[in-house]
Design a protein around this nucleic acid. Structure first.
Lengths: 207, 207
DNA sequence: CCCAGACGTGAACAATGCTTCATATATTAT
DNA sequence: ATAATATATGAAGCATTGTTCACGTCTGGG
């Protein structure tokens, strides 16, 4: 249950002046660019720094090592997704199960798909990381939001909402990742999204 | 729809004499050992060769580069799992949906769990590979077997068995992977396996 | 028994990349 | 204006590792 990220992956210091903030932003953006155009194995600190228009030394002033860069990137994008899920769940409180599921799947799917290439790159990059803390935090947040939503469902109540929630999210998150791994044609992807929602709904109704 | 693996990932030559076969086996086994004890980032050709008790040169006689080693490993273990799924599907032809799902989920889950640490290591290692061909072949095989099984179900028939099959497998494979990614306590893992089967069944019944 | 080809060796090479540090410049506070 | 602090630089150090190759050793068929 460790939620504390390893110290070696944390940023070295925060920017205090304006230009430093600009620099850090540029480094982030450059990391994404290099990841997308050159790929994970071509992602080197020197290349990122070059792309960001700063020197390597500058990069190392804010990130203690290469991995901490990827860590921060993943942290950021997981946070974006978590916020979307939380917002969605809050909005759908009191709705019926069908609407809840449709929205939940839709929001998560969309969040991943709208930047598909980046999503894929990040999925790959986490493999090189000690990502337990990231996953843990993301799971906690989405679980809490979803469980709270499900408890307000207008058309059903479950005996073990916690288990149902965990299952639901494991299935949704896992399936989406699986779809990303195989490079399926877009029409089939859309059908799968619908089928996934159907499956989740029939589970929620049946339990 | 490329099923041909990149040439640079294929073995350089096959062993012709007995001692060569022994050597190749030792290299495979050593790769697994290094992967488990040292981790993916510590997996170097020199280390693998040392662990296998051969020289690096020998390793390079059979594998053109480091990645081809991991490729061959993944290919092998995916084949093992595919065979298990195929056998299971063949065995369950004519059964009812509930039994089919229970077995399918059970066999796949078990196949991955019985060497959990290796599974985790391999999940990580594929991220560094051009694994399209691997995934594709595995998907084809399991899809064919599952679809053939579903068509013989004693208690239901689906209008679009192909789509149902693809959905089913995407969900099962994805969920299992998701469970691996988070390091959930064993009791919860078992509950999830049950819930996953329930979900799949209710989907198959409802469609 | 003999030798062509299969197999095995491991030092050395080449390339690359992470990270540091001494130095220089910019900003802010007083 | 001046000191103190924050930020930026990038060449060089250090370590690592993937890969080759010229040279020995072994095996099995004829």
């Amino acid at each position: 249950m460790a939620v504390t990220p390893p110290a070696r992956l944390l940023p070295r210091k925060r920017p205090h002046q304006k230009r430093a903030a600009v620099t850090v932003d540029a480094i982030f953006e450059a990391t994404v660019q290099v990841l997308l155009t050159q790929g994970l194995d071509q992602l080197t600190t020197t290349r990122v720094a070059a792309r960001a228009g700063v020197s390597v030394g500058t990069l190392y002033q804010y990130f203690p090592n290469k991995q901490s860069l990827l860590y921060a990137l993943n942290e950021h994008y997981l946070d974006v997704v978590a916020v979307k899920v939380e917002t969605c769940c809050a909005r759908m409180q009191g709705a019926c199960l069908a609407d809840m599921v449709e929205e939940l799947v839709g929001v998560y799917w969309q969040a991943k798909m709208e930047r598909a290439d980046l999503t894929r790159a990040l999925y790959r990059s986490v493999a090189e990381l000690d990502n337990d803390a990231l996953i843990e935090v993301f799971a906690r947040r989405t679980n809490a939001a979803t469980e709270a939503m499900l408890r307000t469902a207008s058309d059903a109540r479950h005996s073990d909402t916690t288990l149902v929630t965990t299952t639901l999210l494991a299935v949704i998150f896992g399936t989406v990742r699986n779809v990303f791994e195989r490079d399926l044609p877009a029409p089939l992807q859309n059908k799968l999204r619908g089928e996934l929602a159907k499956m989740c709904l029939s589970y929620l109704k049946a339990t």
